[in-house]
Structure formats: structure tokens, C-alpha cells
Amino acid sequence: MARTIAKDHDHKRARILKSAARVFAREGFDRASMAQLAAECGISKANIYHYYDSKDAILFDMLETYLRQLRDGICGLQMDGLSAPDRLRLVVQEILLAYQGVDDEHRVQSTGISALPAEQQQLLRGYQRDLVVFLSDILADISPDVLRDNKEKLRATTMSVFGMLNWFYMWNSGADAEARKDYAALVSDLTLDGLKGI
């Protein structure tokens, strides 16, 4: 007879993933052990194996959940009727707000994806690519004469915006929502108007 799934299965799974993100960010994926993951989560090593058969499976599930939710949340924003500059402002703000509270997951994605099998890397990088394309399309709409037909300049502009957002995450990870909104406005002004915008 198949074992039934506990009512709190999803809650425990989410707790394991959050704890694993802390351990992977602190120790590095290669140095982390299942025993450390279990201890961080406050469960036995045997219990963690009830949910995941390896730390690789935990890493993939953690990154897949994080990146899919980030992609879906940003790409699913309701922006009907907004001008391209207003869409940029909304997307930049929502990205920074989405980064709040997920510092460990964000840090692990930059080093952990390459530890996974190629097909899993492809899926995760696809989520990242979707976000890049989404922002690129908005930037191209803002300045079609300059960016629409110049893919190199469009990519550089898009990645520069992400670079500014990731700078904030790296140096202001504990910032509250208001500080994130203020910085999002600064990034948007710089992107839209250059130094004249601030």
C-alpha cells in the first residue's frame, strides 16, 4: 500500500528548501551535506530523505521554485494601458520587491545552477532568459529607434539594468520595501533619462 502524503507535506518541503538555501549560501553547495541541511531545518537526516533523495534534488527544487515564481510574478504583471516608461518603472520596482527575503536563493542561483545536470540547467536558464526578454521588450518599446534593431546595445542596456538591481541586492539585502521602491525609481530614472533623470 502506498504511503499517504502528510497534510503538512508542502509546508515541510518549503521549510526544507528555505533552510537549504541558507546552508548552500553559507557553506557552498559542494561543501554542504544532507546532515547540515537536516540540522538547519530541525529534522532528522532520515526525515529529510523522506522528501528528497539527494542534495542535488533539493538544489534543483529550490532553484526551480524560486526562479519560476520570480519569472511568473514579473512576466505576469498586469500592465494593460501603461506606457512603456511606466511599464519599466513597475517591472523594476517589482523585481526589487521580489528579491526581498530571498537573498540566499538569489546568491545560490549564481553559483548553484552549474552544479546541476545540463537539462536542469537549461530549464532554469530558460526562466532567467524569459525575464531578460521581458525587460528587453519594454526597453525596446521605450527607445525603438536606438534599441529595436541594435541587439547588442539592447542586450547591454538590459543587462545594465539587471546589474543595477543586483548591486542593490548585494549591498542592501536587508532594505525594506520603501528603500527598494526608492532605488527602483532611481534605476528607472537613470535608464529613462540618464543623469538628467536624477
Score class of each variant (00 low, 15 high):
residue 77 L to S: 02
residue 159 M to Q: 11
residue 134 F to D: 02
residue 141 D to C: 07
residue 146 V to K: 13
residue 10 D to Q: 14
residue 110 S to K: 10
residue 37 L to Y: 04
residue 180 R to M: 08
residue 190 L to A: 07
residue 41 C to P: 13
residue 122 Q to G: 04
residue 66 Y to T: 05
residue 167 W to V: 05
residue 42 G to N: 07
residue 16 I to C: 00
residue 50 H to K: 14
residue 132 V to F: 05
residue 70 L to N: 07
residue 60 F to Q: 01
residue 61 D to V: 07
residue 25 A to R: 08
residue 159 M to E: 10
residue 128 Q to H: 02
residue 139 L to T: 12
residue 44 S to W: 06
residue 157 T to K: 09
residue 56 D to A: 14
residue 96 L to S: 01
residue 3 R to L: 12
residue 57 A to Q: 06
residue 81 G to S: 12
residue 3 R to V: 09
residue 171 W to K: 08
residue 6 A to S: 11
residue 67 L to F: 08
residue 197 G to R: 14
residue 67 L to Y: 03
residue 30 D to F: 06
residue 23 V to S: 12
residue 79 M to V: 14
residue 51 Y to P: 01
residue 15 R to L: 15
residue 9 H to D: 13
residue 129 R to Q: 13
residue 71 R to W: 00
residue 180 R to H: 09
residue 131 L to D: 01
residue 20 A to L: 12
residue 69 Q to C: 06
residue 51 Y to C: 09
residue 130 D to F: 01
residue 31 R to I: 00
residue 8 D to V: 10
residue 34 M to R: 05
residue 68 R to W: 13
residue 166 N to H: 11
residue 168 F to E: 00
residue 62 M to V: 05
residue 132 V to M: 12
residue 75 C to S: 10
residue 122 Q to K: 15
residue 26 R to N: 12
residue 63 L to W: 04
residue 75 C to N: 07
residue 154 L to P: 06
residue 8 D to N: 15
residue 154 L to T: 02
residue 18 K to V: 04
residue 50 H to M: 11
residue 157 T to E: 11
residue 44 S to V: 08
residue 36 Q to K: 07
residue 52 Y to I: 10
residue 39 A to L: 10
residue 84 A to G: 03
residue 76 G to S: 09
residue 162 F to R: 08
residue 183 Y to T: 13
residue 158 T to R: 12
residue 93 Q to S: 15
residue 138 I to Y: 10
residue 145 D to T: 08
residue 198 I to M: 10
residue 153 K to N: 01
residue 44 S to R: 05
residue 63 L to Y: 03
residue 58 I to K: 02
residue 57 A to L: 04
residue 179 A to P: 03
residue 60 F to T: 03
residue 89 R to T: 15
residue 89 R to W: 00
residue 93 Q to G: 13
residue 188 S to G: 04
residue 30 D to K: 14
residue 40 E to R: 06
residue 132 V to L: 07
residue 185 A to Y: 12
residue 49 Y to L: 12
residue 191 T to K: 03
residue 153 K to T: 10
residue 52 Y to V: 03
residue 176 D to E: 11
residue 70 L to A: 12
residue 176 D to H: 10
residue 146 V to F: 14
residue 9 H to T: 02
residue 108 V to W: 11
residue 153 K to H: 04
residue 34 M to N: 01
residue 144 P to W: 09
residue 185 A to P: 01
residue 45 K to D: 09
residue 21 A to G: 05
residue 137 D to A: 12
residue 115 A to F: 04
residue 93 Q to M: 06
residue 127 Y to I: 04
residue 172 N to S: 14
